[in-house]
Design a protein around this nucleic acid. Structure first.
Lengths: 217, 217
DNA sequence: GTCTATAACCTGATAGAC
DNA sequence: GTCTATCAGGTTATAGAC
């Protein structure tokens, strides 16, 4: 009956490197990161990086794949849940993203700025395109507002949750707000975003658009 | 009466370098850019970069300052115009940003990702903080909706205009949409954003928020 | 002002001892 | 597995001819 409890306080060297790489790559980006920075951050020698991961590029690829999934993995289970209504999906998207990004504020700017160079390599396997385009959420949005492209609403939901984190460095450094205020605002946003988006789904846009575009579509 | 018309088709070498630097830095970021790339892009020799600008860093600083102003300069004249109403300011912000970013789609991701490293150096002189916090727009937003922090609405207006361009590489590479569709959507957004934001300003959020924050402000 | 050649430095990767 | 020492290649910056 004597339980053997082994508390593994020692993290493996490989994981130490991976963790350091996550931190440094995420903060500085691939090109600005030196393998020496990662080694130092891990409290280890440079040679060990190449022993465990063959090259800087391969180490980066592991981190990047992980981070892309961290950023986009949130979406899939929510937008394709057949048991939830439109409104619930919006609530969950806002909450999940704001909670997750509060823990990892520099995730979006890292992923999006690295992805602009070679987007296909890291997104192709996740099938993000079909995942979104054929999603239940899209179907529900079309049903609710057939006249407006549903991608507008998806962009808005994600943008209202993610954009503040992308702009955070400017907010803080220009004293538009401080870290405490930012946290308060992001908590408020979890309830405000669904309210706002529901509003968008109800509003009938003025027929002003017809006047400006008289020519045929 | 013989007019001397001198058409200056030759751009000065200095301007050729600056133009090439704008292009390469904006596309690849500071760290990933090699001075050789810029020289090649300009069709010139590497040594000339150091002749005209003392170093890669100084050349970058010039480009960066310019780009920061390009991205944030749009805001100032609109949000502090005493002759326009709240709604007009929203319309102008959406239109100006979407028009400008349609011409320079990779501007936001470049500026925001470079700014995360040393934000103060490039934003301090523009006084972006006071410019926004003491703006007429903020006053008008508070007047219209005293219960909600006006920064929410500013974040939303800017986010709905800018975020699509930040996400554009993913949209295109994952085939969520193609370039033509993106253009159509962004044109629609110029009229939709003001409609949506006006909606936000009218909606009375459920009193649910009061329950969560019982403490005094 | 513009070029070629090269210096001075930095960075990723490896060899080899322990 | 982990370290020190070092190599090979690339990058910024400059010297010096034209």
């Amino acid at each position: 009956m004597a339980k053997k409890i082994i508390i593994d306080t020692d993290i493996s060297t490989e994981e130490k490197i991976r963790e350091a790489a996550r931190k440094v790559f995420t903060k500085k980006g691939y090109a600005a990161t030196r393998t020496r920075d990662i080694a130092e951050e891990a409290g280890l020698n440079l040679a060990l990086l190449n022993y465990y991961f063959r090259s800087k590029e391969k180490l980066f690829a592991e981190v990047m794949t992980e981070k892309v999934q961290q950023l986009f993995g949130v979406i899939a289970p929510i937008i394709n849940d057949p048991s939830t209504q439109l409104n619930t999906k919006i609530v969950r998207l806002a909450e999940s993203y704001i909670d997750m990004l509060s823990q990892h504020p520099d995730l979006p700017i890292f992923v999006l700025s690295e992805l602009r160079n070679n987007p296909v390599q890291f997104t192709s396997k996740m099938q993000i395109g079909p995942l979104i385009k054929d999603s239940i959420l899209i179907r529900q949005l079309i049903e609710k507002r057939p006249a407006i492209n549903p991608l507008h609403f998806i962009t808005n939901i994600l943008g209202m949750a993610i954009f503040p984190f992308i702009a955070q460095p400017i907010f803080l450094s220009t004293a538009i707000m401080d870290a405490r205020q930012f946290k308060v605002l992001m908590t408020e946003r979890k309830t405000l975003i669904p309210v706002w988006v529901n509003g968008m789904l109800e509003i009938e846009p003025h027929s002003k658009t017809d006047k400006t575009n008289k020519h045929e579509e």
